[in-house]
Design a binder for these strands. Structure first.
Lengths: 341, 341
DNA sequence: TTGTATGCGTTATCAT
DNA sequence: ATGATAACGCATACAA
């Protein structure tokens, strides 16, 4: 087992001082040509690489980014993560991921753990429970310590920091408007409990589009499903007790589930009923029929989040008069078979 | 901005020495009751938390695990990752993820970077390119340095280390055997290029099942698709030029694509043709018809990999007579609508 | 009971 | 041109 070699080893072996070795390896002008060559050759031979931890301690810079997301087995988050990882990696940063699992406690614990020197900044999306409790003290503490933070998608106005979101309201508006333009009049909204910030925004867009087109929003055309463990009955009952000719779903899975049950009921898609879902994931592309969706550009979102974070990390702005941005990414409607054209 | 507080700050403020503070916070018996209380109270008040980096440097232990996977937007890897993350987190470890993006170079670069002190051990699945090149020097260097390594799924026999795999050959055998038992005779295999270790194993199981049942394997019933950018034509042509009554696909996506095109051709599933795919992902559950698949138990795989790694990290075994295990997880056949029952 | 000194691996400042 | 020393934050063996 060849142990990792350190400056000290090289120094001892070559009978020079540690600082000479350090300088020689950095090609410092103040070291003699032959000494430099000797040291560099030896270092190459034994494959010397500086120890990251020691450098982190010295520089008070870890070159690590902490990413905290609610779930990793989830197309959208995965996509954002890819964007983060790519950008970070290309700029010399590594990524430490913690999954909050939609739990407030896990989010807090992980955040505090990483905040003790392991990372230079955070990128995160709030857990369901955190949004529900409306408790953001852990975020506040981190920002007060001067650790840069970027929130994406599931954000909160309670915290002053950089944010990346999509134009949820506008794109929901456009989606519903589009449904109306194709003659649909009884348009349902399938959503989650509205402590989800994004769901709320999407519902607003839905409502506004209806009203601007002279339709009024009916509560009974809004179905709120639990975030996990959806059961078919709720959906079936919803379709049975309402005449519906179009549906906007706040996520892909809800849309797929609804399409299935609607089809089972004998409805033809898109002739009798149209569907649009948020999250342009893999299901949308391969469902039958294929689903018209809102593309959230997750990878771009991640890339921008990473860009904002690294900029903050590397800028030397004197606290206080700090300035924060909220970047809004334009979502795109991807039209497929579930809506007529 | 309240700066992170260190032992030094506390010591200075309380006019005691750093080591007294250090010991007091560890509740050492050798510190006087009142001093301890004073220090602990102060530390709590200012929310003192030891700096992870400093501890890492001291202990030569980072409590970080490096995970290198080919792709993160991929159900199987994501699932394994979740298993790793959960287990690691529950045992006090954080996870640094690097995505090799199926590239040999990225794999090498990331591995070398992390190996310089950032992590205590690696969990990885080989990139496509690495398997193709059959070059594992980067793995060899890491293990020679005494850094524990666990390979999963895409493994190689060239490297001596712990491994976690599924019984690819057996489960492929069982799948094909099952197809035969339901009367199928012309069974196709849709696979990738066979430098993928797992694909090769699955092909072996396929062939053996045929032969054990008195059928012989025909090359023209084996379709090799490129790993990315599959085009429909290749598949269509394959179905047009061959009479086929069942298909085994080495992944979920291939199965979904094939099912679509078979249906387009007018074949009924599973009456005219059955399908079984590897990877029990989200597509399988929501495709029409739903797909019978091989469940690879990714989360369990990740959990076991993490368990093996952490055990190695924390064991004090004297190099040399080290012993490595290969854990084989039993895959399960999940029967759905794409096969008759 | 408390404090001093040393070391983890590196770099930077200041001698020589 | 080279080396000694201090510092990053913490822990611990050893003195006092």
């Amino acid at each position: 087992m060849k142990q990792k070699i350190t400056l000290k080893h090289i120094a001892r072996e070559l009978e020079v001082s540690i600082s000479t070795v350090s300088k020689a390896l950095k090609n410092s002008e103040e070291i003699g040509r032959d000494t430099k060559e000797k040291v560099q050759a030896f270092a190459k031979l034994y494959n010397y690489k500086p120890n990251n931890i020691a450098i982190s301690l010295k520089n008070k810079r870890t070159k690590n980014i902490g990413v905290i997301i609610p779930d990793i087995v989830h197309h959208f988050f995965t996509t954002v993560f890819r964007g983060i990882e790519k950008y970070a990696n290309a700029h010399g940063y590594n990524v430490i991921v913690c999954v909050s699992d939609e739990s407030f406690d896990k989010e807090v614990i992980n955040m505090e753990l990483l905040a003790n020197g392991s990372i230079d900044g955070f990128i995160m999306s709030l857990s369901a429970e955190t949004q529900q409790k409306n408790d953001f003290n852990h975020l506040k503490e981190v920002t007060e310590q001067g650790i840069p933070l970027v929130l994406f998608d599931r954000v909160t106005e309670e915290i002053d920091c950089d944010k990346v979101v999509i134009n949820d309201m506008e794109i929901a508006y456009r989606a519903v408007d589009k449904l109306i333009k194709t003659g649909r009049k009884r348009i349902a909204l399938v959503t989650t409990e509205n402590y989800f910030n994004v769901s709320k925004k999407r519902a607003e867009g839905y409502q506004k589009a209806l009203e601007d087109n002279g339709l009024k929003m009916e509560e009974r055309l809004v179905l709120k499903l639990p975030y996990t463990e959806v059961n078919d009955e709720m959906i079936t009952k919803f379709f049975d007790t309402n005449e519906i000719d179009a549906v906007l779903c706040v996520n892909e899975l809800f849309a797929i589930l609804c399409m299935r049950l609607a089809q089972k009921k004998g409805l033809r898609i898109p002739e009798d009923i149209s569907f649009i879902g948020f999250t342009n994931g893999i299901l949308s592309r391969y469902a039958t029929p294929t689903l018209t969706t809102v593309e959230q550009h997750g990878e771009k979102m991640g890339q921008i989040a990473a860009e904002m974070l690294i900029k903050k990390i590397e800028s030397e702005i004197d606290e206080e008069e700090e300035t924060y941005r909220t970047e809004v990414i334009e979502a795109t409607l991807i039209e497929r078979e579930s809506t007529p054209n």
